[in-house]
Design a protein around this nucleic acid. Sequence first.
DNA 1: TCTTGACTTAGACATTGTCCAATGTAGGAT
DNA 2: ATCCTACATTGGACAATGTCTAAGTCAAGA
Lengths: 138, 138
Amino acid sequence: MSDLLERLRGRGWRLTAQRRVVAEVLDGDHVHYTADEVHARASERLPEISRATVYNTLGELVLLGEVLEVSTDGRAKRYDPNAHHDHHHLVCSQCGTIRDVHISSDPLSALPEPERFGFEVSEVSVTYRGTCPNCARA
Amino acid sequence: MSDLLERLRGRGWRLTAQRRVVAEVLDGDHVHYTADEVHARASERLPEISRATVYNTLGELVLLGEVLEVSTDGRAKRYDPNAHHDHHHLVCSQCGTIRDVHISSDPLSALPEPERFGFEVSEVSVTYRGTCPNCARA
DNA sequence: TCTTGACTTAGACATTGTCCAATGTAGGAT
DNA sequence: ATCCTACATTGGACAATGTCTAAGTCAAGA
């Protein structure tokens, strides 16, 4: 069993076939799926799983902090299982694909004190947009 | 007439009552409205304006680079008339307030070539999240 | 094994945005 | 000033994404 499922069970999650399948789909890759993509992939293993359950489960995983919700420009939200590592995102403007990337400097230090307007800044996210190799070819 | 309308006319925009009203709504305030909010405000001055026209006009303004589309976490997109100054956003996690901020280094240079995965990167946005002075006091 | 409350389901509904064919009109041409 | 016509607008259907509910199902503790 994956670390993810292990942790969830440790938190008293009732472990159903549906939740297991959703967690397994997420646990796999560096590319992030939309809720419907997760549903499609989950359905391959568990054909009768419903959309509502996928949405519910994703929402719970986000609340538990096991998964990050990444929303880009009015498109469907995507779910990033890599919540425990500090990273940023590279988004294809055309197809919406998202990859995790790691950057070489801390963007927090680029925000001078007078530009903080008294905010207590706790988090920063950097989103790079462009065209992925796939869309560039087309 | 506002600078905005002036520029648009200079670009050969056909100046209709509807477009004028949409531009005026955007130009007037420092709050960033959703498309429906723009529509509601435009309707006060021009009751028969349609939703489609508001969406069309906003889309054109974005394409022309006169207005920025800001999408916040799966909710309706908001339109930011301050498109001519390169800036990023400082968001209060509690009340949702958004401020424009200017940063001191180019985050593009922080993304090494091997982390670009063949993407042609064209744009980068940085979002700082934290607590605004107002919410911190409460 | 039994019970129970949490989980799942199907589908209706909500929100936001897009598309289209029919109609109207801004602004150049006459 | 009036006419043309390409461009703009309209309303409503449609699409994509997400939320909610009532009824049925099941995991797991007693």
